[in-house]
Nucleic acid binder design. Structure first.
Lengths: 340, 340
DNA sequence: CTTGCATTGAGGTGCGCACCTCAATTACAG
DNA sequence: CTGTAATTGAGGTGCGCACCTCAATGCAAG
């Protein structure tokens, strides 16, 4: 049998009460007693039974995901995964919920975060664009004991918060490498499309992309980023003009999470199958496009993994444990038609 | 507060004892009582508190990984991940251990499995090559109530066991697609190397590989599989001869998990950087080779994920739950230098 | 030595459930 | 109607720990 707290008390030569004081960081413990107990813990290999701990504490973890209001398929996917996690954790003393607010307005985000009470929630995963106000609000949340995870978004990294997501520079570089190698030695121009280049992650991806193209594939010329602002008419205009002015385009890189608008717009003016196309994020649309070879590769970060990871991290932090780094690292996945 | 069993009893209009009988499938429950309780469960949204359940049952799950005796870096990686999982689960009522036996001897594997008692272990993840004896032994284990996972190995799938690992046909196809697209339109021959072609997974990978090369890249010619049998001298002989007879070779595909021997052997006779090379499994060796561009891509299945997945599945089965399919699917990862 | 404070031990309660016993009630066959 | 079996309820115990109270002990300053 595993040693219990009682065994531990015996081994340390102290009472159960003192063991309890040490284990739970209660006051009024002499250095000597603390040492006796910690030594005994090592010696007999004592590990708290988490089931008993949770039961006794009758504690419920309340985690929240703060996600953008709008969004196309990728966001929907994400919401679904959060829901899945909620269901899976219902039985596990963990409540998960979602709040959607217009994250393009940093003021609104900051205000929401500032209003959060630790009675209301134990941890929050925030997916919002970079802004000093939001960063400040997060820092203050952390001071108040609410765990914060910077979630899949291009924030400047806080040292006191955890980050869940991919290295966007590397992701851009990966896209560049794929396009470069797929095109082989043919020279040409690459169309780069983003929803907006205001977001930190778009910028990083672009930098990574350019760096490898310049270094390894100088015969390829990446064009300036075209921005759609998520607007159909604007996308149509910008893309059509770019295609007309650059007949040498033989590749397309879509920086943003939502590939549907750019890709379906391009399809109106050019033959996708003659282009090498790389996009971000697996969605029903991008998956289908990959299957019928309108696009050649998807760079993805597994949203289900990201959601679970964020929850595990917040939980570990609350229990003052260190998260398992290797498990919590989100991989930059490359999806081809063959390994979907 | 979440409803407790007591609330449930009240809501169902029966006693706690009857609720207990229904929840734990004990005998002597009338259909009517069972119905009352299950209806009440739905109605009030009752969910058992797993902490309390585990505490009351004071049950410890004992899982075992049965792995091959020998092996190079990949196996070592795997052992490490199992160890990591063991540590992480120590506090979680779960004991994990490893047994290594010479899995090339199906007789020994079958014998070991047959000798297993359900008093000793609750579930076992078996990584061993296909053989009817082993399959039978596993089937008998399942009948005795021990959960079995076919782990990362080329077994014929049992319907009654779970499988953790990748689709090897698709993995081979992915390798083929990468090589085909990386080589672009240049014709040439592809060297295919395996430790042995006796293993089910090697065969499936080869089939997947050939199918896509034939279909999509007919200008490429995959050579017959060269087998190293893990032997240095044999590898040297076979590979040197193949390279001499086929100067048109411009790509290499290493089917097996251990790429070190084939790759370092090739390096003695040819310039790896002029070849397009795809191998399986991330190991310290393959990682370094990818970094310094001796190889071009790694097809990997995350061993840490696989280990954790196997454990989660065995656990879910023991608790008569359905594992979360989306989480337990092992992805075919493509690693380039950029997304390592 | 006394006062005041920090430290320690003993003991109890409750978390939500599994598992057990024993009596009481009900259903059913003969 | 009787006997028997099936069903139900009441109640208790323990899992390992957190959290609380109260009394007892130690220690140091004045």
């Amino acid at each position: 049998m595993r040693p219990t707290a009682k065994d531990l008390a015996e081994a340390a030569g102290v009472s159960l009460a003192t063991v309890d004081r040490v284990l739970n960081d209660r006051p009024n413990v002499s250095k000597k007693a603390a040492r006796l107990v910690t030594e005994a813990i090592e010696r007999i290999g004592f590990v708290r039974n988490p089931a008993a701990v949770n039961l006794a504490r009758s504690r419920i973890y309340r985690f929240r995901f703060l996600l953008p209001m709008a969004g196309d398929q990728y966001l929907r996917e994400l919401l679904e995964k959060v829901d899945e996690a909620r269901e899976a954790l219902r039985s596990d003393l963990t409540d998960v919920d979602v709040v959607q607010i217009p994250t393009t307005d940093p003021h609104a985000v900051a205000k929401y975060l500032s209003g959060l009470q630790s009675e209301e929630v134990d941890g929050i995963a925030v997916m919002a664009p970079e802004s000093p106000q939001v960063r400040d609000a997060m820092a203050r949340l952390i001071e108040r004991g609410i765990k914060v995870v910077q979630f899949l978004s291009g924030q400047e990294k806080l040292k006191t918060a955890d980050f869940v997501g991919i290295d966007n520079f590397a992701a851009g570089a990966t896209a560049g490498k794929l396009i470069g190698r797929f095109l082989s030695h043919e020279p040409g121009k690459i169309m780069v499309i983003a929803e907006t280049m205001m977001a930190q992650d778009s910028i990083e991806r672009r930098l990574g992309f350019d760096s490898i193209i310049n270094e390894r594939f100088p015969h390829l010329c990446p064009l300036p980023s075209a921005e759609t602002y998520g607007d159909e008419r604007r996308a149509s205009l910008v893309i059509q003009r770019m295609l007309e002015h650059n007949p040498q385009i033989n590749a397309v890189y879509v920086l943003s999470a939502e590939a549907r608008l750019p890709i379906s717009t391009i399809a109106q003016f050019a033959d996708l199958r003659r282009l090498t196309v790389v996009v971000h994020e697996r969605t029903p649309f991008s998956e289908e496009a990959l299957r019928d070879e309108r696009i050649d590769a998807i760079i993805a970060q597994n949203p289900g993994h990201a959601v679970r990871s964020a929850i595990r991290i917040m939980r570990a932090r609350l229990e003052a444990r260190e998260p398992l780094a290797s498990q919590e690292k989100i991989r930059i996945e490359i999806l081809l038609k063959e390994n979907l």
